[in-house]
């Protein structure tokens, strides 16, 4: 069986970033790293692949929609144990960060790869829409479960759990093919050792253009549900007061404030 794991490099922003005159973020203020959720979805895929007792061959394929910034993340996934990596990029995709548009690209990849299971992270930490995975399931007309906290193989299907408010746990069974979005904490993602990192360099990795997927730029851009109009810096909150002075005085003031607030 093939498991497709869509991943993403996310940006974190320096504390003291500034926007330029056109409202654009200085790219130097951005730091790129692997999306936290993706380590858990990939680990879940690797564990499923490793636990299959049957001789059935498992292949774990990671995919990202990104320019060359995405390569580092894919290499890390290959080092963790993914078998193959795909990167989809077209200059026309620059600036597209809409869940529906990205799902449209991933759907084309999925149709080509025909996986038995797709494991997405619940969300990406930078855009935080939590929509790409479920949109992808919709486009592929797959059964899907979001925010999964446990997975068990169950004959030809899966039994999965998701946490609900108040500590309730929902248990669902589903047949394959299917799509799950995976919550952090479901497992303990492995850390690649240096040998695995080196081996990853020789694992297959391909870059696809939209045309390779029989997609047209307009197919992607038109489905985008939202586009960024403007970035704004959040104004300084009202009512914040700086506590200044020597450490003892600051500590004393904090104790005073906390005590007062706890009583209130």
């Amino acid at each position: 069986m093939k498991i497709l794991v869509p991943v993403k490099q996310v940006a974190s922003i320096d504390g003291d970033f500034t926007l330029d005159g056109a409202g654009e973020l200085d790219p130097r203020a951005l730091h790129w790293q692997a999306n936290e959720w993706d380590a858990f979805s990939l680990e879940a895929a690797l564990q499923l692949a490793e636990s299959s007792s049957a001789g059935e061959g498992f292949e774990v394929v990671v995919v990202t929609v990104a320019d060359e910034h995405g390569e580092e993340g894919l290499r890390a996934c290959l080092a963790m144990g993914a078998d193959r990596a795909l990167r989809v990029w077209d200059p026309a995709l620059a600036g597209v960060d809409d869940p529906l548009a990205i799902a449209a690209v991933l759907a084309a990849v999925a149709r080509r790869e025909d996986p038995g299971l797709i494991l997405c992270g619940v969300q990406s930490s930078d855009s935080a829409n939590a929509a790409t995975g479920v949109a992808l399931a919709g486009l592929l007309e797959l059964p899907r479960v979001a925010v999964v906290t446990a997975i068990e193989q169950d004959g030809g299907g899966l039994t999965v759990q998701r946490e609900l408010d108040g500590g309730a746990v929902e248990v669902l069974r589903l047949s394959l093919p299917a799509l799950l979005t995976i919550q952090t904490g479901i497992n303990e993602p492995r850390r690649a050792n240096l040998r695995a990192i080196k081996l990853a360099r020789s694992k297959p990795s391909a870059t696809l253009a939209l045309s390779d997927l029989d997609l047209d730029v307009s197919d992607v851009r038109e489905v985008a549900g939202a586009r960024t109009v403007r970035l704004l810096e959040r104004g300084r909150g009202e009512g914040a007061s700086m506590i200044e002075g020597p450490a003892e005085a600051i500590a004393g003031r904090i104790v005073e404030l906390v005590t007062r607030e706890l009583r209130a």
């Binding site: 850390r191 080196k198 081996l199």
Partner: peptide
């Protein structure tokens, strides 16, 4: 990498 105890075998195969 924290929370990871490496024995000799793990060091030898670490790469």
């Amino acid at each position: 990498i924290l929370g990871t105890r490496l024995d000799a075998e793990a060091v030898l195969s670490y790469g």
